[in-house]
């Protein structure tokens, strides 16, 4: 279980508070207007933003003192998820060993991960020679290999077309399912939430609200969410 205990984040004039729990294995859509602090919330969980006060716990253990790489977290950013000067296989390999000194067994696992994500035969290509969808697959393959319990997605598929985005979400769902990961995904699009999430965290007016069941909250949205979604 992920717990945010009285979390207070302050960046200049911007403030965000969160006090909520996410059960292990859940798929959570983080929804809210732009500038509301969705990315900030993920940044704090991933360890890029130091909260002013409060604690973040995973499985009952506080992770707030840990460095980003030490946290039980894989994160996919909006962009720059791959190093352009490294090949697809090297980018994936960084998920196993940060020095890329890979043994035969590890290379084999990379091969497997590429097969699993539909990247067979593309290992030697660099990101510039891959399509947008393939680049997303490389990032997913790395997250799959790292197999951290918590996956954070900060709209990594925002630049993809609707069909490709659905494809990536379903691949993400399969991968997270196989590894039993908990997923927090920032999105603007209520359809993403319907398609993928079983819980929704609404971020609005400086507060991240506790998760509510997606089906329920999306069909019968409370005031703040209705304002964001507009009359439908």
């Amino acid at each position: 279980m992920l717990e945010l205990e009285d979390l207070q984040i302050r960046q200049g004039d911007f403030a965000l508070s969160a006090d909520l729990k996410v059960p292990a294995g859940a798929r959570v859509a983080v929804i809210g207007p732009s500038g509301s602090g969705k990315s900030t919330l993920l940044g704090a969980i991933a360890g890029f933003i130091v909260p002013e006060s409060g604690r973040i716990l995973w499985g009952g253990e506080p992770i707030t003192p840990l460095l980003p790489a030490e946290r039980p977290v894989s994160i996919l950013f909006q962009e720059n998820n791959l190093f352009p000067h490294l090949t697809a296989a090297q980018n994936i390999g960084l998920g196993l060993r940060a020095d890329l000194k890979l043994n035969a067994g590890e290379r084999d696992r990379i091969e497997q991960a590429m097969k699993r994500t539909g990247l067979e035969g593309l290992g030697l290509r660099r990101p510039a020679d891959l399509s947008g969808g393939q680049q997303s697959r490389v990032a997913l393959a790395r997250a799959f290999l790292r197999n951290k319990p918590l996956m954070l997605l900060d709209e990594p598929f925002a630049a993809l077309g609707p069909a490709l985005k659905r494809e990536m979400l379903s691949l993400l769902g399969e991968i997270a399912g196989e590894n039993g990961n908990t997923v927090l995904m920032v999105t603007h699009d209520p359809d993403d939430a319907r398609l993928f999430a079983d819980l929704v965290v609404m971020v609005d007016e400086g507060k991240a609200h506790p998760p509510a069941p997606a089906a329920e909250i999306l069909t019968n949205p409370p005031e703040a969410l209705r304002r964001y979604l507009g009359e439908q």
């Binding site: 977290v73 190093f83 000067h85 020095d99």
Partner: peptide
């Protein structure tokens, strides 16, 4: 600024950061 967070999240520090990330980026 562009790739530091990625390198941080993957634990690329010290010599590995130089060899695999920074030096190739500023060739």
């Amino acid at each position: 600024a562009a790739f530091g967070p990625l390198a941080d999240s993957l634990g690329l520090f010290g010599r590995d950061r130089l060899r695999l990330f920074l030096l190739p980026r500023i060739r």
